[in-house]
Design a protein around this nucleic acid. Structure first.
Lengths: 377, 377
DNA sequence: TGAATCAATGAATCCTGAC
DNA sequence: TGTCAGGATTCATTGATTC
């Protein structure tokens, strides 16, 4: 009798801890997370709705319309509603995490401050905020702000005393033997990687690049770990987990996304090594804008520049523009204008007086570049 | 009697609106801000305490101690206290801003999510979050996290309807003619720029580089604007403001910082006036109605206009309107109608035949504008 | 076949002054 | 306060089309 009871209990416990590994659960993420056993997953990656608040439609300068994120799942009545939603899914997420588990969230300035505050309030322990610098962001078409060229990720442990996985050496190796920094450069998801439907439209408006998930899983999980994604979408997390020999649990409400994700993941052939290679971004020559020389105090506003023959001259203004007579603009533009030429490389055309020596401004750029590369290498 | 009263009132009003320009107020920033007249400053730059939670002291691999931020002013008992403090100073800051004013805050993951949420709750309107990528950050000595290589800034307008200053063209030009992005690369403040005391210790633990403020003031203020910094520290904001021909109001509690800042700012040589002028944005150029070109005989009534591909054409009428088939109206309206587009810039869309050369009508406008500006100069 | 050109597009809180 | 209309505004990448 006793033995039978114990067996039943053990079986129930086993049943309860048997996780729906490498599958997608369809439905609300809070309900599904609450149905999972507590303390059962190693990592959570979450890409929740951003709560964008778009007022009107936006057109490009060529009058084409920007295909905005206007899906119902991104609509919230107020910050209060968004906060309630955020706290609810974070609470459920925290429960399902192992004691030494950690969580990643990605967001933009519309929502990330709400999410970050909620995380702290719920006793998650922040480890890093990470900046995903987009190599090819959408420009600001109206010329009213800085190009929105990044998104923010937060990496947080379940609690202050969690001993989370961090593959420091692997990250350092992947970054030419220097510590991986908190700013990551990746292109947005386009081309063959971007899932399209029969009509050749994007299946999901905000599909994340696999390279981003590669780095995250490589950095903060071990092979065989279980990664939960409560906003699975078209399954980038699952695809990368499979490639890297990690297990995933996806939760997604929309049937369209679920079926696209299933098809996508089924076709993945795990191949760790090559995938890892593609993660390392190639080092490009650091670009130094002329304005940064002034910002850094290497050229003072008011400095006179001239060409090698001293036929033309121009004055440097604080904003990085040059003036020469009625001409004004960038070093290149004014260089072209004074000569009546179509184009001009201002870096080699313009010179300044360095203690009596006539030196091209390009020399300053070379110096700054060398210093920057040295510092960030 | 009445006259005297009115005079007194006027004097009081004048007294109240007389701002403590280019000075440092010593004491609590909330008290001082509340004593300033409402709606009186153009921009606020704030570098509040970060609420760093260093559990124990940090040691480098060689066992030397890291001089971490552990000053009293950075201690808060809990997030609740920090939030209360944040809301209090942000409220005071919002009151003192002009209706079209804006605010910058800088922070790290320890505090920026609290600050960002508070901003949104207080009806500030976020314009961008900006990432300052440090060229030479402090490494993570323990190898337990990613190198903390950036800080976050938030640029927010006083309200959603504020028309804030943004020198788009100047930023674009300073960035080699492409839009300035939201990720900025600057070295941290070291070397000669870093203020040191007699013992050769740094005067302030978190002195910001002038390059950062240079970009901020260049991007979001005009010459002569008033910039308030409620956490003035050693006065980077004041130093850059003075260099760039902007006014500052600094507020700082610590005498050590105040005296260092005063000395620092007194030694600054402001830029010459001409160097502070910036490129004129197209939006601000003298408006030339199309009709005036006809009035001035530059285009004759009856002239045929066409687009660059010669797919569409229209005729100029004496009153400055165009006709194309059944369409008629302004150059913009007809340009849009013939293409079936929502909008169209007629100045660049429509061309005319100038002795066999196809020239946009905008070239005529440019000529007229130059002549007009010459006359009025 | 290859080079040159054109077209499409991506998490976007995206105008401003006159009446 | 709103309405109306002038007219200003884009970067990197991919893939298709043309030369």
């Amino acid at each position: 009798m006793l033995r039978t009871a114990r067996t039943a209990v053990t079986a129930a416990a086993e049943e309860a801890t048997r996780l729906p590994i490498d599958t997608i659960l369809v439905g609300d993420c809070i309900d599904h997370m609450n149905a999972l056993p507590a303390g059962s997953v190693d990592l959570i990656f979450a890409d929740p709705p951003y709560n964008l608040q778009l007022e009107q439609s936006l057109t490009r300068p060529d009058q084409s319309k920007v295909d905005a994120v206007d899906d119902d799942w991104d609509k919230f009545d107020s910050f209060a509603h968004y906060d309630a939603f955020t706290r609810a899914w974070l609470k459920a997420a925290r429960r399902v995490l192992k004691p030494d588990g950690a969580l990643w969230v990605i967001g933009s300035y519309h929502n990330i401050f709400r999410v970050g505050s909620a995380l702290q309030d719920l006793d998650f322990w922040m480890l890093n905020d990470i900046v995903w610098r987009k190599a090819n962001p959408m420009p600001n078409f109206r010329g009213t702000r800085f190009t929105n060229a990044h998104e923010t990720l937060i990496w947080a442990a379940k609690s202050q005393k969690s001993r989370v996985t961090f593959n420091y050496e692997a990250m350092k190796l992947a970054n030419d033997d220097t510590q991986m920094r908190s700013d990551w450069l990746f292109p947005i998801c386009t081309g063959a990687e971007r899932l399209k439907d029969e009509a050749d439209d994007k299946v999901h408006p905000t599909q994340k690049p696999e390279a981003l998930l590669f780095r995250i899983l490589n950095a903060t999980t071990k092979p065989g770990d279980i990664v939960l994604d409560p906003f699975f979408g078209t399954g980038t997390t699952g695809a990368v987990a499979r490639k890297l020999g990690r297990h995933f649990i996806g939760i997604e409400r929309e049937d369209t996304y679920v079926s696209a994700a299933r098809k996508r993941i089924a076709s993945i052939r795990p191949s760790v090594f090559e995938a890892l290679q593609s993660v390392t971004p190639k080092r490009k020559e650091t670009r130094i804008p002329f304005g940064s020389l002034i910002e850094q105090g290497l050229i003072e506003p008011g400095t006179q520049l001239f060409d090698l023959t001293k036929r033309y001259s121009a004055m440097v203004r604080a904003d990085g523009s040059l003036v020469s007579g009625s001409h004004q603009g960038s070093i290149h533009k004014v260089g072209a204008l004074v000569q009546g030429a179509e184009a001009c490389n201002g870096w080699t055309f313009w010179h300044y007086d360095q203690n009596g020596r006539v030196v091209p401004i390009d020399d300053l750029r070379t110096g700054v570049r060398a210093k920057l590369d040295l510092l960030s290498a």
